[in-house]
Design a protein around this nucleic acid. Structure first.
Length: 553
RNA sequence: UGCCUGAUAGUAUAAGGGUAGUACAACUGAUUUUGGUUCAGUAUGUCUAGGUUCGAAUCCUGGUCGGGCAACCA
């Protein structure tokens, strides 16, 4: 055996279940409610559920927990399917809790017939007060005394639409004094005369999560029902329903949900960002949504790797977004095509270069021997980055400065001779001479320089818009920061450079291709890009040791 | 005041009575035609007080701190 990776606690449970023969194979499920877009937290759950089934030879269902018609929509169903597929997973069955409405209703009726459920006419306020508090027991009301026959008829009438919303609920009779508040006769059915995105107006009673989820698991013979920690107190009720109904004994296991620095993960907050136009839609590249990350250029494989690295445990956590960025860089470094793009141009004139044009070859990816190369036009007039030139250079500045030499990547070593300024003293051009023997690949100059700059030919460069993204929030732990989360939004999370100068090869490149703009970061073409206007999103920056040095002072 | 749950470097996550390890982050240095990549190295940790034991991150007891629980949401 090769070295074994240690198991997380769920894998241990599964291996034990398989070893004892409790289960021959496993079945998991990913059960989103279609009321919003998926985010990176869901990715953790998706990777866990599908990953477990893949690892142990089982299967995973995609089940939409669509028991609340007022919040749900097919738009979300479609986006969720797209996101799961994009992440690289295939579900064995596409299912809906709404598919089970008949069965669920019949199961609830069984509870009624066993005298374990009753129809309650109380208002929600009355029910709430009768529940007591965590330290004081609740009290049962007179409706709990109704006979089985009476309850049967009432539950039938609820389904038949005889009552308005809120008039009656079906409650399960457990224990009004239970220390677990969820066992104090929880509601399992409520009346909602609402249009459901799949069952339309067929139903006016809908099951509550606690009843529908566990029984849906049972119907699908889910062996390991994996959810997040906030459902721990629900497990007693989950088991109670299964035991009373004698349905398939699915078991619920809970892990800690993902929290990440500098972002928000709750559907409510994400929805607010979208609705209040603080971002440009669910797929805004700054969003923690899967669709946002996809648009930003995060590879699915990098997200999977991230989910793998963060682990699965039961303690609250706040993962450094830097780990996600590391996974993205690690993936892209090996795959991204290298290109040169100048964001803030400074004209550079090579005074001793008299050819009209010279084509130079530059490798597409130094990490990939078979990556090939492309040709880049080299001329007398070039653009380099403004920040790559300083008239008065500090120590350890390896870039261009009067009298200093640098290499132009894949081209020649140049020396800065003269700085040209306008009447206001602003630098307009830098004049250099090049060393003809220093050509990349056939350098016989014997000169060694410390800095290498990216560049484009002024005459041949094409224009592009470049969108630079930074973290959406200024504070690490947004959910626990003081005040409203929107107070912490980073006002500089999007910077648009509308006139960047790109090497001509980029005009021929296509959607979905990932690039590394040399010394600038990883980029991907945005969906708003077209033949007349190229638009790139910065996926992530490169690590920048020099920026760190400058910061230290 | 009750119940449930958790606690290992800065952040995560292993070690299941026997050397506290790994990754990211940080810091040094080497290599480099990307201040990228790669490589080598450094520093930093078992919440606390007792107990059991030859030996405790691990088992026991008490405490401390964090999270959750009283939606006709999921």
């Amino acid at each position: 055996m090769s070295e074994e990776k240690s198991l997380n606690f769920i894998e241990e449970i599964i291996e034990a279940d398989l070893a004892t023969g409790k289960h021959q194979s496993i079945t998991t499920r990913f059960p989103p409610e279609p009321n919003g877009y998926l985010h990176i937290g869901h990715a953790k759950s998706i990777c866990l559920n599908f990953g477990l089934a893949n690892k142990y030879g089982g299967s995973t269902n995609l089940r939409f927990d669509d028991t609340n018609p007022v919040t749900e929509d097919t738009e979300y169903v479609e986006s969720i399917k797209e996101d799961v597929r994009w992440l690289g997973f295939e579900w064995s069955k596409e299912l809906y809790a709404s598919d089970y409405f008949d069965q669920l209703y019949a199961l609830a009726m069984q509870l009624v017939e066993k005298g374990l459920a009753y129809v309650d006419d109380s208002t929600s306020e009355e029910i709430a007060t009768q529940k007591g508090t965590p330290t004081h027991p609740g009290t049962r009301n007179q409706f709990a005394q109704r006979t089985v026959e009476e309850n049967k008829q009432l539950f039938l009438d609820m389904k038949a639409g005889k009552y308005p919303d809120g008039a009656k609920v079906l409650r399960v009779k457990i224990d009004m004094a239970s220390p677990n508040m969820l066992l104090r006769d929880p509601i399992i059915y409520r009346i909602k005369h609402a249009h459901h995105h799949r069952t339309a107006d067929a139903w006016c009673v809908y099951p509550m999560y606690d009843f529908a989820h566990g029984q849906s698991d049972s119907i699908e013979k889910i062996t390991h029902s994996i959810c997040t920690l906030e459902f721990v107190p629900h497990r007693d009720l989950y088991d109670w329903c299964i035991n009373q109904l004698g349905t398939f004994p699915s078991k619920q296991y809970e892990f800690a949900r993902l929290n990440m620095t500098y972002t928000v993960m709750s559907k409510r907050k994400l929805l607010q960002l979208v609705n209040e136009h603080l971002v440009n839609g669910w797929d805004d590249p700054r969003m923690s949504t899967i669709s946002g990350m996809r648009r930003r250029g995060y590879p699915a494989a990098a997200i999977r790797e991230f989910c793998d690295r963060i682990g699965v445990a039961k303690r609250e956590n706040l993962i450094d977004v830097g780990l996600l960025e590391f996974c993205v860089r690690e993936n892209l470094n090996k795959t991204a095509q290298r290109r040169m793009v100048v964001f803030n141009p400074l004209k550079l004139v090579i005074t001793n270069f008299d050819n009209e044009l010279e084509m130079l070859s530059s490798e597409n990816n130094p990490e990939d021997e078979n990556g090939g190369a492309r040709e880049m036009p080299f001329c007398k007039e070039l653009f380099i980055e403004q920040e790559d030139f300083m008239e008065v250079a500090p120590k350890k500045y390896f870039r261009l400065a009067p009298g200093q030499m640098v290499r132009l990547k894949s081209a020649y070593i140049i020396k800065c001779d003269e700085v040209i300024k306008d009447a206001n003293g602003n630098i307009t051009e830098v004049h250099c001479t090049y060393i003809p023997e220093s050509r990349s690949g056939s350098d016989s100059s014997g000169i060694h320089v410390k800095g290498t700059l990216h560049w484009v030919s002024a005459k041949h460069a094409i224009q592009a818009e470049v969108r630079l993204y930074d973290r959406l929030f200024k504070v690490e732990d947004v959910a626990n920061a003081e005040g409203d989360f929107k107070d912490h939004i980073n006002p500089d999370s999007l910077q648009i450079i509308s006139n960047a100068y790109a090497e001509p090869a980029l005009a021929k490149d296509t959607m979905d291709q990932q690039f590394q703009f040399l010394r600038k970061g990883y980029f991907v073409i945005d969906k708003e890009s077209n033949s007349t206007k190229l638009v790139f999103n910065r996926t992530v920056t490169l690590k920048d040791a020099w920026a760190k040095e400058v910061k230290k002072g």
